[in-house]
Every structure is written in C-alpha cells, then in structure tokens.
C-alpha cells in the first residue's frame, strides 16, 4: 500500500484515478488541482508517490515536478500525459520523473506502475 497524491486540474481525472487506486488498496492522501497547490501539499503530506498531470492552469506539471524534486530529490512522481505531449514527457524525464502513463489508460496500467515504485 502506498500513500499517493493525485495532481490534476480535471476533477473527473482525479476521481477516476482515485477510484482505481482505492480498489487496489492504495491510500490517496491528497489531491491538488494545479502545480502550485501540489508543491504545498507535497510539503505537508510527504506522499510516497505523486501522479502529476502535465497541462494545468496556474503552474504546469513539469514546473511543479522540478520544484518537488528540489524539495525532495527522492520524490517519486509519475507523469500523467497524453499522446502529442512527447516533448514535455522528455522534459519531465530529464527533470526526474520516475515514469509516465499515457491517457487513456487502464486500471492495470496505473496500478502496475505504482506497484513497481513502492
């Protein structure tokens, strides 16, 4: 079981991911709707794993990832991305993301990714 924080500006995606994680008995310790909030929540909650959307208002996922990596170089952040965002995924990898999942994804996909990181 991992303590996970979900970062996504779309409430629908947060609910979807949360439902998937809960079914596999992971604990969703927090959610954030943009990169800026994610940084604050990360400091408070110290989650084991973060799922991070890339395109968000206020602060995008890559910038947020970089900030989180500065706070905690061992942070485990999985990017949630979509086809067409290849250039940004590359940035994310170079900035320390532990991996990425591509929307639309299946439950097994995200769970196996999380399980590998725990």
């Amino acid at each position: 079981m991992a303590r996970i924080m979900i970062v996504d500006d779309a409430a629908f995606m947060r609910i979807t991911i949360k439902n998937m994680l809960k079914r596999s008995n992971h604990e969703v310790v927090g959610e954030a709707e943009n990169g800026l909030v994610a940084i604050e929540r990360y400091k408070e909650l110290k989650p084991d794993i973060v799922t991070m959307d890339i395109t968000m208002p206020e602060m995008d996922g890559i910038t947020s990832l970089r900030e989180i990596m500065k706070i905690d170089p061992n942070a485990k952040v999985i990017m949630v991305t979509a086809m067409g965002q290849e250039a940004m995924v590359r940035d994310a990898i170079l900035s320390g993301a532990k991996g990425f999942i591509v929307k639309p994804f299946k439950e097994e996909g995200i769970i196996s990714a999380i399980d590998k990181l725990v």
Partner: peptide
Amino acid sequence: EVFRVMHTVKGASAM
C-alpha cells in the same frame, strides 16, 4: 486556455 480545455476534455472523454 482553449488548448488546456480541449486537452482536458480529450483526456476525460478518452477515459
């Protein structure tokens, strides 16, 4: 903003 909204709609609808 338009780009972001379309991106979000795409992601959720594909799911």
